[in-house]
Design a protein around this nucleic acid. Structure first.
Length: 874
DNA sequence: TTAATCACG
DNA sequence: ACGTACGTGATTAAT
C-alpha cells in the first residue's frame, strides 16, 4: 500500500507559460529572469499546497520525436523559441538541481509521454498523481488517482481536471479527449483534425458515438451533409490526428517512480541561485526559515589587557567608527578574526597595545579589510601607518560589478547571504537618535563585520579571477587605495582669508543685483526659487516659455540665454545665479570644510562611479570653478601647506580622444595625434575638406563639439543642443564625421554589438560595466545603454590610465626621495605641492611618468604649470 | 526626500 | 516616432 504523492511537471510548457505571463525582467547583469521567476513561483505554490513525496520535471528532448515520423509537420509553424527564453533554461535547470528535484528527458519523446508513462505506473500503484502543465492535452491522463492541473490566467492559478470536472466541462470522459483532438485538431501542435469541425461539433459527435472509430462506423447516421462530406474526405487525417494527440503511456523510460523521491531543497544552494538572479522577494520569503531562530550567536572576546593580545599572522580586521567620514570620526575599536576566534579591541586598548601597533605596521602580517582606504586613513590619523593590506571587500565588490551599491559591510554580506550583520543605521540609530551603543553591542557588530570580510574574501577573489579582473583589482585599485588615503590625509591648505575676501565682494554684487532684479520685476521674490522665478518671467513679464520641467517652467541657463534679448532682466538673473552659486557652494561651502589644521580633506570615492573614475565628496574638490574668471579666482585660496612651497598641476591633453583613436584604430585619427596636430583643427580640416588656413574658428568650434559628442555616444539631438543648430544639420555633421573617420564608425558599431552579446563592456584594463538595458524593448532605455556602451570604455580607460599614473608617480616620488606630495586628482589632472627646489625635477618626471603610464598607439601628452596657488597653475 | 540648477572633467 | 548628449556632487526650495 503506497501513500506516495507524485507531482509531475511539464517543464517546457510551464517555462513558456511563465515567460509569456510575465514582462521581460532582467537582473543587474542583463540576464532575463522572468521565466525562471514565474516557474519558481509556481513551484513554490505547488510544493506548499501539495507537499509531494515524489517530484519530477519532464522536458522535451530536442527537435524530433516519434510523432514526426507519423506526421512530419507535427508542431510545424511554431515560432522559434525567443532567445530571451532560451537563455533562461540553463538557469532553470540549475535551480531545479538546487531544489533537488529530479529532471528527465528522453530522446524522441516529449515531456507528455514521460508524464503519461509515469502517471500510469503511479496510478497503478495506487499513488496519488498530480500533473501540472499549460497544455490541455494532458487532461486525457486524468483518472480517479490522477488530477491534471492546467494553468489558467497568470502563473499560479491552476484549473484542476478530474474525470468529474472533464465530464462537467465537456460532457466526455478523459479517454475521449484524444478523440476530440482527432476530430477538431489542435492549431498549436499543427494537428489538422477534420476541417469544419470545432469543439462544439466534436463534442456533439462524441456524446453520440463515443470515439472517432465509432463515428466512422456509423458515418451514415451522422446528420449534416457538409459535415458528413468533410468526415468522409478526411478520415485518414482524423485517425492520424487522434494518434498524434495520444500520449504514449509505455515510453521506454530509464527511470522509475522511486527515482522521483523528493528530499526537499538544498536551501543554501537555492539561496545562492536566488542571489545570482537577484530574486529579492523570493529571498525574503526564504529568510523567515533561517531567521525564525535567533540570529546565530557569535562569540566576540573583548580585549581588555593590551599586553595579553597576540594577533595571528593573517587576520580580517574592521575598524569600527560611528561616523561614515573616517577622516573626522573617532575610532571605537577594531573587530578582528583569524577565521576561528573573533576579538574586539576597544580604541583605548589599541592605543596602549604595542603588540597590536607593531602588528598593524608589519608588512608581513596580512590584513583583510572591508575598506582599506578608510582603514589606512583612520589609523594614520592616530599615528599608525598600516602595512600589509591584502584584501579590500569594498574594492573587490566594486570591481566585480560597479553597480553594486556598497553602503556598509552589512549590505555586501547580505548580498552574498553570508554573515548576519545589522546595518550601521540599526546599531547606531539615525538622525537625532544616533548614539554610541554600549561596548558589548559594538564588539559584536565589529566582530561580525570582520567575520564577513574573512568569509567573503575567497568568494570575491574567485569571482574576480573568473572575470579576469584580479589584476585590475590587486595591482591597480588596491595600491591606489593607499595612495588616495595618503592624499586625503594630507589635505589641501586653504586660505580662509582669500575666500572671505571674495565672499565680501560677491555679497556686495549680489545685493546690488537683487535690488535691480526686484526693481525690474516690480516686486520682491526669491530669485533662487525656479518656481517663483518662472512665475515672474513667464506670467508677470510675459516672456515665452521655451522648455518645461516636470513641475513647471524651466529657468535653466540655456533657456534664459535664449531669452536674453527679450528682456534685460534676464542678464541680471544669469549673473545673479552665477555669483550666487559661487557664494553658496564655494565660498560658504568650502569655508565650512576647513579643518583645524587649515586644510580641506576631501574624500575620494573609489568604488562609486560606473565608469571607473573617482569622485570627490565632503567637499567635492573636483568641481572647483575654472571656466569663468570670476569663479576661477576661488582657486587662489588653495595654496601650498609649507612656506616656500609651490603648487604644481599637470593634465593630460585630449586623453579621451586619444583613447578613442587607440581603441578604434582609426588611421586618420591616429595620424593626427602622431603628428601632434591640434585635434579639433585637424577634425575640421577633414570633415569640411579644407586646408589648415581654411579652418575658421566656427568650423573648429563645430568640430570640437562633434568630437565631444563622439566620446559621449553621439546623437543628433545632443549635438544640435550643444551647437544650437537643428537636428537635421547636426545629423549631417555626424554622418560626414563618421564617413571621414571610418574606424570610429566601426568601433561604435562593434562596441554596441559586443555589449549586446556579453551584456557588458570593458575598458583596456578589463574594468566592466554591465548594461542590462542594452536589449530593452524600450527605445529610450536601449538608446541610453547604447550611448553608455560607446562612452564607458573611453572614459573608463582614461580613468585606468590616470590611476596607473598615480601609482607610478607615488613610486617615483619615493624612489627620487622627493618631499613633493600628491594632493588631488581631477579626472585627467594631478595636483601636487612641492618645495621650490623640486619644481624643476617635477617638470621633468611628472610628464614622463604620466605619459608612459600605459602605451597606446598614439602618444599621451601632458601639460603642466606651477605657481603659488592653484589659481596660478595655468 | 526629490527636483532643479549648476560647478567640474 | 520615441527624447538625449557621458560621468560626477552640493545647494536650494519645496514636498
Amino acid at each position: 500500500m503506497s501513500k506516495n504523492k507524485i507531482v509531475l511537471l511539464d517543464g517546457n510548457s510551464l517555462a513558456y507559460r511563465a515567460f509569456f505571463a510575465l514582462p521581460l525582467l532582467t537582473n543587474d547583469t542583463g540576464i532575463h529572469t522572468n521565466a525562471v521567476y514565474g516557474f519558481t513561483m509556481m513551484l513554490q505554490n505547488i510544493l506548499e499546497e501539495e507537499k509531494p513525496t515524489h517530484l519530477l520535471v519532464a522536458w522535451d528532448a530536442g527537435k524530433t520525436t516519434f510523432r514526426h515520423s507519423t506526421f512530419s509537420e507535427y508542431k510545424g509553424g511554431r515560432q522559434k523559441t525567443p532567445p530571451e527564453l532560451s537563455e533562461q533554461f540553463p538557469y532553470l535547470r540549475k535551480l531545479l538541481d538546487a531544489y533537488r528535484i529530479p529532471q528527465y528527458e528522453l530522446d524522441q519523446y516529449e515531456a507528455d509521454d514521460i508524464i503519461g508513462t509515469l502517471s500510469k505506473t503511479g496510478d497503478a500503484d495506487g499513488s496519488e498523481v498530480i500533473i501540472i502543465s499549460g497544455d490541455k492535452d494532458l487532461t486525457q491522463l486524468a483518472s480517479d488517482h490522477t488530477t491534471v492541473c492546467i494553468t489558467r490566467k497568470g502563473i499560479t492559478d491552476l484549473e484542476k481536471y478530474t474525470p468529474a470536472h472533464i465530464m462537467e466541462k465537456y460532457g466526455i470522459a478523459p479517454e475521449q479527449i484524444i478523440d476530440m483532438k482527432g476530430l477538431m485538431g489542435d492549431a498549436s501542435d499543427n494537428i489538422p483534425g477534420v476541417p469544419g469541425v470545432g469543439e462544439k461539433t466534436a463534442l456533439k459527435l462524441l456524446k453520440e458515438y463515443g470515439t472517432v472509430e465509432k463515428v466512422y462506423e456509423s458515418l451514415d447516421a451522422v446528420s449534416g451533409k457538409k459535415l458528413k462530406e468533410n468526415l468522409t474526405e478526411h478520415e485518414e487525417q482524423a485517425f492520424m490526428s487522434k494518434k498524434l494527440a495520444t500520449i504514449e503511456v509505455n515510453a521506454p523510460l530509464t527511470i522509475s517512480i522511486k527515482d522521483l523521491n523528493y528530499p526537499g531543497p538544498d536551501e543554501d544552494h537555492v539561496k545562492a541561485i536566488y542571489e545570482e538572479l537577484k530574486f529579492k522577494t523570493l529571498l525574503e520569503k526564504m529568510a523567515p526559515q533561517t531567521e525564525s531562530g535567533p540570529i546565530e550567536e557569535i562569540d566576540v572576546q573583548i580585549i581588555t589587557d593590551p599586553e595579553a593580545f597576540d594577533p595571528a599572522d593573517v587576520m580580517a580586521i574592521h575598524v569600527e567608527m560611528m561616523d561614515e567620514n573616517y577622516l573626522a570620526s573617532d575610532i571605537s575599536g577594531i573587530g578582528m578574526t583569524d577565521g576561528n576566534q573573533i576579538v574586539f579591541v576597544p580604541f583605548e586598548v589599541m592605543m596602549q597595545s604595542d603588540k597590536l601597533k607593531a602588528w598593524l605596521l608589519d608588512e608581513q602580517k596580512e590584513k583583510y579589510t572591508s575598506d582599506s582606504k578608510a582603514t589606512f586613513a583612520s589609523l594614520l590619523r592616530q599615528g599608525i601607518e598600516v602595512n600589509g593590506l591584502e584584501f579590500d571587500l569594498l574594492l573587490a565588490t566594486y570591481i566585480a560589478n560597479p553597480s553594486s551599491s556598497y553602503t556598509d559591510v552589512a549590505s555586501v554580506a547580505k548580498e552574498f547571504n553570508y554573515v548576519e550583520i545589522q546595518p550601521d543605521e540599526v546599531v547606531y540609530g539615525k538622525g537625532a537618535k544616533k548614539a554610541m551603543p554600549e561596548e558589548r553591542i559594538l564588539a559584536d557588530h565589529a566582530g561580525r563585520k570582520a567575520q564577513a570580510v574573512w568569509k567573503l574574501k575567497p568568494i570575491l577573489e574567485e569571482k574576480l579571477r573568473e572575470n579576469e579582473q584580479f589584476e585590475l583589482y590587486r595591482e591597480l585599485e588596491m595600491p591606489l587605495a593607499k595612495i588616495l588615503g595618503k592624499m586625503e590625509s594630507t589635505g589641501v591648505k586653504t586660505d580662509l582669508g582669500i575666500l572671505q575676501q571674495i565672499g565680501i565682494e560677491l555679497s556686495a554684487k549680489l545685493s546690488e543685483l537683487e535690488s535691480i532684479i526686484y526693481e525690474m520685476a516690480g516686486q520682491k521674490f526669491n530669485i533662487n526659487s525656479p518656481k517663483q522665478l518662472g512665475e515672474i518671467l513667464f506670467e508677470k513679464i510675459g516672456l515665452t516659455p521655451i522648455k518645461k520641467t516636470k513641475t513647471g517652467y524651466s529657468t535653466a541657463a540655456d533657456v534664459l540665454e535664449k531669452l536674453e534679448s527679450e528682456h534685460e532682466i534676464i542678464g541680471y538673473i544669469l549673473t545673479y545665479r552665477q555669483l550666487g552659486k559661487l557664494n553658496s557652494t564655494y565660498i560658504e561651502g568650502l569655508s565650512k570644510e576647513i579643518h583645524e589644521d587649515g586644510k580641506i580633506h576631501t574624500r575620494f570615492q573609489q568604488a562609486l562611479t560606473q565608469t571607473g573614475r573617482l569622485s570627490s565628496i565632503n567637499p567635492n574638490l573636483q568641481n572647483i570653478p575654472i571656466r569663468l574668471e570670476e569663479g576661477r579666482k576661488i582657486r587662489a585660496a588653495f595654496v601650498p601647506s609649507e612656506p616656500g612651497w609651490y603648487m604644481f598641476a599637470a593634465d593630460y591633453s585630449q586623453i579621451e580622444l586619444r583613447v578613442l583613436a587607440h581603441m578604434s584604430e582609426d588611421e586618420k585619427m591616429i595620424a593626427a595625434f602622431r603628428e601632434g596636430e591640434d585635434i579639433h583643427t585637424k577634425t575640421a580640416m577633414d570633415v569640411f575638406g579644407v586646408d589648415k588656413d581654411g579652418v575658421s574658428s566656427d568650423m573648429r568650434r563645430t568640430a570640437k563639439a562633434v568630437n565631444f559628442g563622439i566620446v559621449y555616444g553621439i546623437s543628433d539631438y545632443g549635438l544640435s543642443q550643444s551647437l544650437n543648430i537643428t537636428r537635421k544639420e547636426a545629423g549631417k555633421f555626424i554622418d560626414t564625421y563618421l564617413a571621414t573617420f571610418p574606424g570610429v564608425k566601426r568601433y561604435m558599431e562593434d562596441i554596441v554589438t559586443q555589449a549586446k552579446m556579453n551584456g557588458y563592456v570593458v575598458t583596456m584594463m578589463n574594468r566592466r560595466r554591465y548594461l542590462p538595458d542594452i536589449t530593452s524593448s524600450n527605445f529610450n532605455l536601449r538608446s541610453f545603454a547604447e550611448r553608455t556602451a560607446m562612452n564607458t570604455p573611453i572614459q573608463g580607460t582614461a580613468a585606468d590610465i590616470i590611476k596607473k599614473a598615480m601609482i607610478d608617480m607615488d613610486a617615483r616620488l619615493k624612489a627620487e626621495n622627493l618631499q613633493t606630495r600628491m594632493l588631488l586628482q581631477v579626472h585627467d589632472e594631478l595636483i601636487f605641492e612641492a618645495p621650490e627646489n623640486e619644481i624643476e625635477k617635477l617638470k621633468e618626471i611628472v610628464p614622463e611618468v604620466m605619459e608612459s603610464a600605459l602605451t597606446l598607439d598614439v602618444p599621451l601628452k601632458v601639460e603642466w604649470a606651477s605657481g603659488l596657488s592653484w589659481y596660478e597653475t595655468k
